[in-house]
Every structure is written in C-alpha cells, then in structure tokens.
Amino acid sequence: MAVIPEIKETTLSLNAIDKTYDMGVEQVHALRGVSLDICRNEYIAIMGASGSGKSTLMNIIGCLDSPSAGAYYLEGENVAAMSENQLSEIRNRQIGFVFQTFNLIARASIFHNVELPMIYGGIPRGERRRYAEEAITRVGLNDRIKHKPNELSGGQRQRVAIARALVFNPSIILADEPTGNLDSRTGGEIMGILDELHAAGQTIILVTHEEEIAQHASRVIRLKDGEVESDLRVDDTDACIAPSESLHLVGGATS
C-alpha cells in the first residue's frame, strides 16, 4: 500500500499580489503577481536584494499593508479586503512580529511588553499574567521579568520580542532580519530559539539577506524585481501537499 502523505492545511495563500506605490509622476511596482501557498508549520526564508520587494511582501503578509491587487487568504479569510480595524485584529491574533531592531517599548517592563498584545486582544488580567510568564519562561528570561529593555543585552531583547510574538499563539511568526543587529554568537542563539519553535509546530517566515540564516529554513523563496525568482524546498519534511479540491484559490503551490 502506498504511503498516504499527511495532508497539511494551507495557512497562508497569496494569489497574484500586486503592490504599486504612487510616487507622484511615476508608479513603482514593488510586487508583480506574487503567488505563494504556505502551510502550517512551514519554515520559510524570504530572500532578495534591497529593492527586490521582500519588505513589501513581508508588510503584506504581516497585514501591515494591503495589496493593490490580488487576494490574500490567511486561515481561509481574505485579508486583502479588510478594514484597518479588522487588520488590527488579524495582526493581534494571527501574526507575531520579530523585528531587526527588536521594537520593544522602552519605558515598559519586559512583562508589560510581552503582555501588550493581549491587552489589545482584551484578555483578562489573570490570564495575561499566566500566558506572559509562560512565554517569557520559554525564551529563558523568567528572572528578568521586571526589568526594562535597556537593562538587557541585544540578544535578550530579541528574546523578549520573540516571547511577545508567540504569546498569543499566532498562525505565523514573521521575523524580519531577526539577527541583523546581533553578533553571530547571539544571532545563533536566537536562530536556535526559532528552530525550537518550529520544531514545536510553529509556522515561521524569515526575511533575511544572509544565506547562513536562510539555511535554517526548509524552504527558500527568492524575490527579484517584485517577482518570485525561485522557490526551493531545502528539505521535504514540511512539504505542502494540499489536495486540489481543498483549494479555494487559483494559482497555488509553486513546488
């Protein structure tokens, strides 16, 4: 009997995404017809030179920006047509950002920083405390919970950012050059944490220009001039084998 592959759910599906910036006289096409399917628990690196459109793609995947044309399904919902308030909710519940510059709120404690998404999500105080402590423990900073970001090293700050990103159990963790401001040893530690999260079932999208970092991912998507140049699977364990009838979208997997 043939081995039936495990059917994995599509978490995220981009279909013919265009993004055009109106710069007065001329129009800049940051993305041209980008289509992608990303499944649960995939570990993806998006690469590309500066100006390739990777930041724009990340902003759209992170629901910080809306595409000019095309459809973007996140957990089955078309977010391309959503209002600012709805997008806020999606960012709140489904996306966990990890930024190059950590982006912590400087005057707030580690605890408050990690708790913040849950405040906007309307989670009661008691639960917030429990989840925040869990997440902080998970990145190994439970002894620093009352500290302010400026009392921590860069690596520790990025751990806080990761704790904040995962505290709401998001569909995707979106890491934009997460090691860009760290030395290679600390960067390695941060990548270790991301690897662990992936092993525990978390979907992760890395945006990076470093090959070394990209190697942590199991699939590398390269962008050039706003288009997908290549989409390569480094290892097939997380392969996205979606039955065609389950696809509510056109286009589909590039593999």
Binding site: G62, L64, E84, N85, S88, E89, R91, N92, R93, F97, N103, L104, I105, L116, P117, Y120, G121, R164
Partner: peptide, 8 residues
C-alpha cells in the same frame, strides 16, 4: 509598534 501588535 503598538499597531503592529494589534492596537486599533
């Protein structure tokens, strides 16, 4: 930052 975390 707050908006990226879901502040409306």
């Amino acid at each position: 930052i707050r908006k990226s975390l879901g502040a409306k």
